[in-house]
Design a protein around this nucleic acid. Structure first.
Lengths: 247, 247
DNA sequence: GCAAAAGTGTTTTCCGTACACCCATGT
DNA sequence: ACATGGGTGTACGGAAAACACTTTTGC
């Protein structure tokens, strides 16, 4: 085994929807490097710990869930970042994780953070390390996964209305969707939503029905955002097109 | 910085289409652990080397391209694997990379491998470490990317016919596609294919036209494989559904 | 001529979009 | 009564599936 050893960290892109805008959980660093700067929450992987354990442990610490298992939500690996100069302390590889959560109370900082806050993704300050790129990758992943999966329900509490769900899509994609067609799409997709018998009274207008998430995870056919009419899209940030040469 | 240090390796899922079947490049390990077992090609990340550099360097070594830049193809990061017991030598994190290449001559082993060979993905022997999972993730990624990107051309040589391209889809998806609808779909998608003036003579039937890859990278609307009629799909192997609890 | 493969046209069907319309509640 | 938001019905258009048909070669 070679002697090129790395420290391995996990960084979390924790997304939620608050007041109809997509927000990300940021922490203010309480120790160098980048002391006082904003950053994504994260931490080093402990011995005998798997990556996803580190991620869910840190997620619990930052979002307030005491024990290991958190609220209804979603956690998936994003990508790894290991540019040689990304951390002034030395060679650190960071594995990005994407977490989608329903709206939560204000976070209480943990794991060496001086402060933590929900921040609208369009208003994020400059971030420490290469966290800006990790965040961008996470947001792009979330946007595209809403198209062909039922992951939007991960942003919703246990029971929610169709309008709640639509506002999730509108916040993440920053578009507006036709409420009537949206209603039909999600209620007619088998396994997406399970209706309850409860109606929500108290608001203006006809009381909406509450739904729970169904067993389906994929959406076929997908729900497309506006931008998808053109025949081109940028290659994903970490894709590498190998250069062309004579065979 | 904590003292939990990892060795960091890159492992490659190198895919190509030979004789109308999807193949993966395997090596026979020339050193312990797992000496004599089949495995994915890979290697440790050198100091000052970025992940993608390691991946493209090892790809060049194994597929015969002398210098850094390889043939036309595609290389992208898959995911990272770091279970504590995945390597008997100690704590090793492996970053999986997916490479798509046109059909190549038989490989010449490099980087400490005893042998190397193209192996049909349906006939792979048991692999060392957790390479079976990395391979499965890579194949699944390739299958799904053919749906909504133009990446299938990465499996084709510089110039190719529409039928060549269709055979790529059929091999990767293990389905058969209607040649006539396929033809219209790919030739009418703007930026997918650029026609040349050359016709290929010598075969039976009307000589087909040669095409080159176009500038488009995304396919909208996507090309769907058969299985996508049902409303469900398995969650991706590395996704984690957070358990549910009281808020 | 005949078989085989390339490529085009036509019909049907599905689905997304747009929008008219009805339903059920608060004020 | 009326405004407001929930929810349904319906017409239109674009694209995919299915398949008949023409084109162009080798034999």
């Amino acid at each position: 085994m070679r002697g090129n050893l790395f420290a391995v960290a996990v960084n979390l892109v924790v997304l939620t929807v608050r007041s109809d805008r997509l927000h990300v959980l940021l922490i203010e660093r309480g120790e160098p490097p980048f002391l006082g700067h904003w950053a994504l929450p994260g931490g080093f992987v402990r011995p005998e710990e798997d990556l996803v354990h580190t991620a869910s442990r840190r997620l619990g610490e930052e979002t307030g869930a005491d024990t290991g298992s958190a609220v209804c939500g979603h956690l998936e690996q994003l990508a790894s970042y290991a540019a040689p100069d990304r951390d002034p302390r030395g060679r650190v590889l960071s594995v990005g994780y994407l977490a989608l959560l329903p709206d939560m109370p204000e976070p209480t900082p943990g794991g060496g953070a001086a402060a933590s806050a929900w921040c609208a993704v369009d208003d994020v300050p400059p971030l420490a390390f290469d966290h800006q790129r990790i965040l961008a990758d996470g947001v792009e992943r979330a946007k595209s996964k809403l198209e062909y999966t039922t992951l939007a329900v991960s942003f919703c509490p246990d029971e929610f209305t169709v309008t709640d769900l639509r506002r999730v899509y509108e916040a993440v994609w920053e578009t507006s969707l036709d409420p009537r067609n949206f209603q039909r799409k999600v209620t007619s997709t088998d396994g997406f939503l399970v209706p309850t018998t409860t109606l929500v009274t108290g608001g203006r207008g006809r009381p909406p029905r509450l739904f729970r998430r169904g067993p389906a995870t994929a959406l076929h056919p997908p729900m497309l955002r506006e931008s998808h009419r053109a025949g081109n899209r940028q290659p994903a940030p970490h894709d590498t097109e190998l250069h062309h040469s004579v065979e």
